[in-house]
Write a protein that binds this DNA or RNA. Structure first.
Length: 206
DNA sequence: AAACGTCACAACCGCGTGGAG
DNA sequence: GCTCCACGCGGTTGTGACGTT
């Protein structure tokens, strides 16, 4: 991850970008727990985060919110996503409202990485050869025509899609180099913190 | 075992919209 | 009515993880 150390020390006044550290997450969680969300720009300043309000908002909505549900999109959810996408197209936030706990970003990513891929594959097998490369990518914007809702076969829709992630629906975040904090024991996940960890720490801080 | 390619996801960016002053 | 600001949305990019050769 850490792209560049962000040479933060020298230019602290600057806005930080890139992956969030656990410390930043904790600060944000704490601050919102005490003051509530909203007015993100001033929130970022008041909380002492060197992030834009936009970045804070995104982090909170997509990742830190307690009610956010991650991983394991169920077959039901997948069907719903496909139905709603057929109806509304790329209105991710609208679609997300019908999937409690899911974020527009997650749904968008999910669509692009899984479903769209299969649409493409389907297209290719349908129109072997004649297909124009240019159109392949338009699958996303062109609401996938009529095939969408029902046409997009259950082949994929009936099973959990990602067996690898099935084991932990819990979000993992990277810890900072923090001598005081002991990483979760064992496992190759030792470099990561779950949201549960974060929230319990947040509670302790209170 | 190493190199390479692909996948999945977090985060950023730009733009449009709505409200306050 | 106009301008500015904050917010929200959708598209895109960057990067680590994982799989394949």
């Amino acid at each position: 991850m850490d792209k560049k150390p962000c040479n933060s020390s020298s230019q602290d006044a600057e806005v930080r970008k890139g992956p969030w550290t656990m410390e930043e997450d904790l600060i944000l969680i704490n601050y919102i727990a005490n003051h509530g969300e909203g007015v993100w720009n001033s929130l970022a300043k008041s909380a002492g985060l060197k992030r834009t309000g936009k970045s804070c908002r995104l982090r909170w909505l997509n990742y830190l919110r307690p009610d956010v549900r991650r991983g394991n999109i169920t077959p039901e959810e997948q069907l719903l996503i496909m139905e709603l996408h057929a109806k509304w197209g790329n209105r991710w936030s609208k679609i997300a409202k019908h999937l409690p706990g899911r974020t527009d970003n997650e749904i968008k990513n999910y669509w692009r990485t899984r479903i769209q891929k299969h649409i493409k594959q389907g297209d290719q097998s349908n129109s072997q050869g004649q297909s124009s490369e240019g159109t392949a990518d338009q699958a996303s914007t062109s609401q996938m025509g009529s095939s969408s809702t029902t046409g997009l076969d259950p082949m994929e829709t009936t099973y959990p899609l990602c067996p690898t992630t099935a084991s932990y629906p819990v979000t993992l975040v990277q810890p900072p180099d923090h001598p005081n904090v002991v990483p979760p024991p064992d496992s190759n996940q030792e470099n990561y913190w779950s949201m549960e960890d974060l929230w319990s720490m947040q509670l302790l801080n209170e």
